[in-house]
């Protein structure tokens, strides 16, 4: 099944660039192998933000596969990100 993350940002701001940069570095992580990233600028595609009910950015959404998950704010911490997206649960994390 397709594995899709979607990152919402607003405009070409410093914080948008920082969010994108940290996600891209996380994608190199083996745990996020085969995950695709889609970047949406709310200014350009407001209807997508509407559908996903985006209230705050940066927002990272696990679109596929379910369960849907969302992380808002600081995306630099690898563990927070993987736990928040339910890609790695706590038990797995400790086993590894």
């Amino acid at each position: 099944m397709k594995k899709l993350l979607r990152l919402y940002v607003v405009g070409k701001t410093m914080s948008a660039a920082e969010a994108l940069e940290s996600i891209q570095s996380h994608l190199a992580d083996p745990a996020l192998e085969n995950w695709e990233l889609e970047v949406v600028d709310v200014l350009e595609q407001p209807q997508l933000a509407e559908e996903d009910r985006i209230i705050a950015v940066p927002a990272l959404i696990r679109k596929l596969p379910p369960p849907m998950r969302r992380l808002v704010g600081d995306l630099t911490n690898r563990e927070q990100l993987l736990l928040g997206l339910d890609i790695l649960n706590r038990e797995q994390e400790t086993r590894e």
């Binding site: 919402y8 607003v10 405009g11 914080s15 709310v42 933000a49 985006i54 209230i55 705050a56 950015v57 940066p58 927002a59 369960p67 849907m68 998950r69 969302r70 992380l71 808002v72 704010g73 600081d74 995306l75 911490n77 927070q80 928040g84």
Partner: peptide, 14 residues
């Protein structure tokens, strides 16, 4: 599904 918030966010712009 809720959301997990870490650090500072921007709600005004979106």
């Amino acid at each position: 599904e809720g959301e997990t918030v870490h650090g500072r966010v921007d709600w005004l712009a979106p």
